[in-house]
């Protein structure tokens, strides 16, 4: 039995026993290589669940639907290691109770799906440990280094070009599991800190504010990058922030549910190179 069938039958079991009220997984998309989220509430519907190399989205974001977890019942969700890290961060930030989240863990290697052992977020600590030890994505690192090699002025021009494309659709925010605020800072209009029109200044403000809000929280699931309709390489900004917190504070977002937010804590041996 393949992993897809195994998880289908396990999901059906959880639903029929009432252990979970909902299974959030992947279903067929508009093309063969695309997968879209499906929400399964009955054992029969588990037939719709698909698990293959196209299941890349971080489904943890759907757990934050208002009221979903407030009845105390559990929800099962298909997650890759990055999504499991998201669960840890959301638990650390009191947005969900990790005991309510049953995880169908999997990973994709060269297009092949592999099952991960465990059901609770805490069970996956070894997997996350391995991921941390392997470091940030080498592929991203290579891409990011190209930007480091050019001068600050050229880099500014590069981002100005990229941000000038932004149409403020906020798809990046909607897809991101970390953007759970009921009212986003861009929606504050008394005073209006972030200009809502999509010209370069306001676009800069929005994207930089978002990058800072994700520092030490982004797990590089790539959701924002994939969802951007104008192809702004948001992955590079997020990667840079993740690298900063890893290098400066040995902080790898979502290691465990007890992790304190990196920007709200300090240790006496924190580097203070920027303080005169």
């Amino acid at each position: 039995m393949g992993i897809q069938e195994q998880y289908r039958s396990e999901a059906a079991g959880l639903l029929s026993s009432g252990a979970v009220k909902l299974v959030i997984g992947f279903g067929e998309g508009s093309t063969v290589e695309r997968r879209r989220p499906v929400f399964v509430r009955t054992p029969a519907e588990t037939e719709r669940l698909v698990l293959d190399g196209g299941c890349v989205a971080n489904l943890s974001t759907y757990l934050l639907t208002e009221g979903l977890l407030s009845d105390g019942k559990s929800v099962a969700v298909f997650l890759k290691p990055d999504g499991i890290r998201s669960i840890n961060i959301l638990a650390a930030e009191a947005q969900l109770n990790p005991e309510q989240v049953v995880i169908f863990g999997f990973d994709i290697e060269e297009g092949q799906v592999r099952a991960l052992e465990g059901r609770k977020a805490s069970d996956f600590a070894p997997v996350i440990g391995v991921a941390k030890a392997a470091g940030l994505s080498a592929e991203l690192q290579k891409e990011a280094e190209l930007l480091d090699q050019i001068s600050a002025a050229e880099r500014f021009e590069y981002w100005k070009d990229q941000f000038s494309k932004c149409i403020k659709c906020y798809a990046c925010r909607q897809v991101c599991p970390m953007c759970y605020c009921r009212r986003c800072i861009v929606d504050v209009n008394q005073p209006q800190w972030v200009n809502t029109s999509s010209h370069t200044l306001g676009n800069f403000e929005w994207n930089i504010v978002r990058a800072f809000h994700l520092a030490g929280r982004c797990v590089a699931c790539g959701g924002c990058d994939r969802s951007c309709p104008v192809n702004i390489p948001l992955r590079l900004i997020n990667h840079r922030m993740a690298k900063e917190v890893l290098d400066a504070f040995d902080y790898y977002a979502g290691e465990c549910a007890e992790q304190k937010p990196v920007l709200a804590t300090f240790r006496q041996d924190d580097p203070e190179t920027f303080i005169l």
Binding site: E93, A94, C181, R182, P261, L263, A264
Partner: peptide
């Protein structure tokens, strides 16, 4: 109260 997301980052900070 109406907009607080309850992340407790402020309490930690």
């Amino acid at each position: 109260d109406s907009t607080c997301a309850g992340c407790w980052g402020c309490a930690t900070a």
